[in-house]
Design a binder for these strands. Structure first.
Length: 316
DNA sequence: GCAGTTCCTTCCCAGTCCGG
DNA sequence: CCGGACTGGGAAGGAACTGC
């Protein structure tokens, strides 16, 4: 009997047991977040965008700051790009904030200030892919499905498919089949965050099998127990002096200048960051790129936060 | 040659880890 | 203790591949 066949028909007994064990674990361990029980598609959208590239521990702070500043879709859509970036602060990947801003404008202008619930419409929105679309459907509209991320792929990859590695690389369709069978009906808004939290705290890259409630039924457990060598997770490039490092520096300075409503010349911006002439040349290119992405504006020899000069002064 | 699909790389930074 | 390296992970865009 091959693995695929077994996985396509997980015994009902095992499905029930896994659901029961994880739901019990959730009672004591799942961290409650404000977007998980509100059935608010706007909250779900903001949370989904915040969750991209960001550790769970940092999401709440960004989410709260955003909702405090822009409590409704219209407030967010009508804000200036500078205000959006100011609120986003140093949360990282500012393009996400710009995309979220564009998405809110589209929802206001095209969908009558409503965030769509249809997956095909959702993934057409800037910065919304399959994962974020699923988050909106699950938490915003109570649709029963699994938002498959690497945590969930790793858990199902280990517990069901028997792959011990931190990054499960078999057919993604197989994981979808597993996910569909294990999803407890009517409980997607609890089940998804439970799996995500479980993957973030127990079934991590280097798993904590001793304290794992699924250890007796985990197919990968014997391999993990025998001390199999886990593949290292992919290395990321050095952050210091990288483009993303300098982009972050440029935006930080412009956020401060924007706060003080100060004008700033492009030359002063570059010189304030470095005296190194080669680096200055590189920074000039990064400034051009940031302007193309509508994260900063350039006019004559001046530079500022947002997509147009003075766009932070029109909010009333 | 072209369109469609799949694969690969880059983007982003605070918290954590680790070696000196 | 300090500073530098590592970690996490979906979206987007480009590159490579496939099929007609």
């Amino acid at each position: 009997m091959n693995l695929q066949f077994e996985i396509e028909r997980i015994p009902k007994k095992n499905v029930g047991l896994i659901q029961k064990l994880l739901m019990e674990w959730a009672k004591d361990n799942k961290i409650p977040f404000p977007w998980q029980n509100n059935r608010n598609p706007y909250y779900a959208l903001v949370a989904g965008v915040c969750a991209q590239q960001t550790q769970m521990s940092r999401i709440l702070e960004i989410f709260n700051r955003w909702i405090d500043s822009f409590p409704t879709i219209e407030k967010g859509a009508n804000a200036s790009r500078a205000e959006i970036l100011q609120v986003w602060g140093n949360a990282g990947y500012p393009r996400r904030a710009a995309n979220l801003h564009k998405t809110l404008k589209i929802c206001v202008n095209k969908y009558d200030s409503i965030i769509p619930h249809d997956e095909d419409l959702l993934i057409q929105l800037p910065g919304v892919g399959p994962f974020t679309a699923s988050i909106i459907q699950i938490f915003g509209y109570g649709i029963d499905k699994t938002a498959i991320d690497t945590n969930i792929t790793r858990i199902y990859g280990r517990v069901i498919c028997g792959d011990p590695q931190p990054v499960h690389e078999s057919d993604p369709k197989l994981i979808q089949i597993v996910a569909a069978q294990l999803l407890p009906s009517g409980k997607a808004h609890i089940w998804n965050p439970t799996l995500m939290d479980f993957g973030a705290t127990v079934c991590t890259a280097k798993p904590k099998c001793d304290s794992c409630i699924l250890k007796k039924i985990c197919v990968a457990r014997p391999k993990l127990h025998s001390g199999i060598e886990l593949l290292p997770t992919k290395k990321t490039s050095t952050f210091m002096n990288s483009n993303r490092y300098w982009r972050g520096k440029i935006l930080k300075i412009l956020r401060e200048k924007n706060n003080n409503s100060e004008n700033f010349s492009r030359k002063n911006l570059v010189v304030s960051l470095t005296k190194d002439l080669d680096l200055q040349e590189k920074l000039q290119k990064l400034i051009d790129d940031l302007a193309k992405e509508e994260l900063i504006w350039l006019q004559e020899n001046m530079v500022g936060l947002g997509d147009s000069p003075g766009s932070n002064r029109n909010s009333n």
